[in-house]
Amino acid sequence: MSFINYSSREINCKIVYYGPGLCGKTTNLQFIFKRTNPNQKGKLISLATETERTLFFDFLPLALGDIKGFKVRFHLYTVPGQVFYAASRKLILKGVDGVVFVSDSQIERMEANIESLEDLKINLAEQGYDLDRLPFIIQHNKRDLPNVAPISEMNNILNTNGVPWFEAIATQGTGVFETLKNIGKQVLIELKKSY
């Protein structure tokens, strides 16, 4: 649910990074924050525990530029990945325009990926959204680790609908902006369709 303000000539869109605990959602936002022009970004807000695990959400506002005289702003959010924060995760999906699912490529985390993806579908449905009809992409993260599942297997299991996907090493920034660009484009194309 984007917010279009004709008075200040702004479009605001909400993108949520979803995924299992420790998959690298916050790392994605931190990298984007680090590498974005200061005049294009706001503060990176992290509501985290003392051990730097996301407690409620991270938030990063980005102003990328203009389209047809309208300032385009993306509000990036992450959810807390840990299973027991289910109630908080649900809240953050409210009003979402696009979802990035960050998967953890390590073989032992496959089950956590599957569980999180199911959780995403259920939570979206509760808010009246259908994942198949929402701008959605998958980022297979941590590709640099030694014990990763082959990318074909990751896609076979997690990407049954064949949505766009990217390989990433979020700690080094590989694939981070490619992911952001793709979801951003999809959100704007969706916005265009609805008018």
């Binding site: 990328l64 203009d66 047809k68 005289g69 951003g184 704007l188 916005l191 008018y195």
Partner: peptide, 18 residues
């Protein structure tokens, strides 16, 4: 009758943004 400017967004506009 909505004369939204977004109906005319081109792929090029979107590419330029990124």
């Amino acid at each position: 009758l909505n004369e939204s400017p977004f109906a005319e967004i081109s792929d090029e506009d979107i590419d330029n943004l990124f």
